[in-house]
């Protein structure tokens, strides 16, 4: 039964133009991340050459090229920003559509007139979201590999391939959280728009407000893969910094940097510690969504608005 629900959901999503468009935007931005990485790298190298010439004309020695120390995968560092922005919105819409359509069209009411366990129903829905996001991440990884192949004129090494796989696996887990938030929001509200906006509100808090509270990161600072360190010596942060491990978007960005090698290296245990709160949040949200579906009154339905 789980497989049937998941299959039906996958067919339904394929017909949703908005959803297909969002997946298209994500893939386009993945390609753009490669283009942007390549362009900025080329420009920096040329800026460095110009700087060396200028310093030499002033009789000064040039410092080492800051870009030479950067790993190959740093070209894709923008992906650690696009996933929490575009990917998370895609995941919210995915989770929203998975349950909202059944609610507003009355399919949910019809399904539960049959002998179907609600656990199987919600498991099928979560499975379909997991498959869709896994496919989107696989496609995104394929685009990233093509970008690396074109820029470096050679296939990534085995290690880089594993790093890239690790990054997209982490991104999949991160997006699952937002898909589940999108689903849960449908179950606790009576209108589709309220559900969408409530999920968006959560996303705004997790992406922009929480990092400001825990690390003093301004909203637009969160949009740049390279951030300057912020002073957090104020008493305010001594209290809020304790919640930093639970600042999911910050931990995702840090863990992504560690996996791709674009941030200062850290041990595997450190990276695992960063991922753990995310994994626990996903498990918690899955349990909460299941509990909400179990007690949800499908006879009422949801307004289309």
């Amino acid at each position: 039964m789980i497989a049937t629900v998941a299959r039906q959901q996958l067919v339904s999503l394929r017909r949703q133009r908005i959803f297909v468009a969002l997946v298209g935007i994500l893939l386009f931005m993945t390609a753009m991340a490669g283009v942007i990485g390549w362009m900025s790298r080329e420009t920096i190298v040329r800026v460095y050459d110009e700087a060396v010439r200028l310093l030499a004309s002033n009789g000064q020695a040039a410092p080492p090229n800051p870009f030479e120390l950067k790993p190959t995968l740093s070209m894709l560092s923008n992906m650690s920003i696009y996933i929490p922005l575009i990917g998370a919105l895609l995941a919210i819409v995915l989770g929203h559509l998975s349950l909202a359509d059944d609610e507003s069209t009355g399919i949910g009411r019809m399904i539960f007139s049959r002998q179907i366990a609600r656990t199987s129903y919600v498991a099928g829905k979560i499975l379909s979201s997991a498959i869709v996001l896994a496919l989107a991440m696989a496609a995104s990884m394929a685009v990233s590999l093509v970008a690396l192949l074109l820029v470096n004129r050679g296939l990534p090494t085995g290690g880089e391939f594993v790093q890239l796989g690790g990054f997209y696996a982490l991104s999949w887990l991160y997006l699952m959280l937002f898909a589940l938030i999108g689903m849960a929001a449908v179950l606790v509200t009576r209108r589709r728009s309220l559900a969408l906006l409530a999920a968006m509100g959560f996303w705004l808090i997790l992406t922009f407000a929480v990092p400001q509270f825990t690390s003093g990161l301004r909203p637009t600072t969160s949009l740049n893969p390279i951030t300057d360190p912020v002073s957090t010596s104020q008493p305010f942060f001594t209290a809020t910094a304790k919640a930093r491990p639970f600042s999911i978007s910050e931990q995702y960005k840090e863990a992504s940097g560690a996996i791709l090698g674009t941030a200062p290296s850290e041990s595997g245990t450190e990276t695992t510690k960063r991922v753990l709160p995310l994994a626990v949040s996903v498990a918690g949200m899955a349990a909460a969504t299941t509990a909400l579906v179990k007690r949800h009154d499908y006879s009422k339905g949801t307004s289309d608005e």
């Binding site: 900025s40 920096i44 870009f67 740049n224 390279i226 300057d228 360190p229």
Partner: peptide
């Protein structure tokens, strides 16, 4: 991101 100055901390 394309700003050259933003490429290095």
């Amino acid at each position: 991101t394309l700003d050259a100055d933003n490429q290095v901390p």
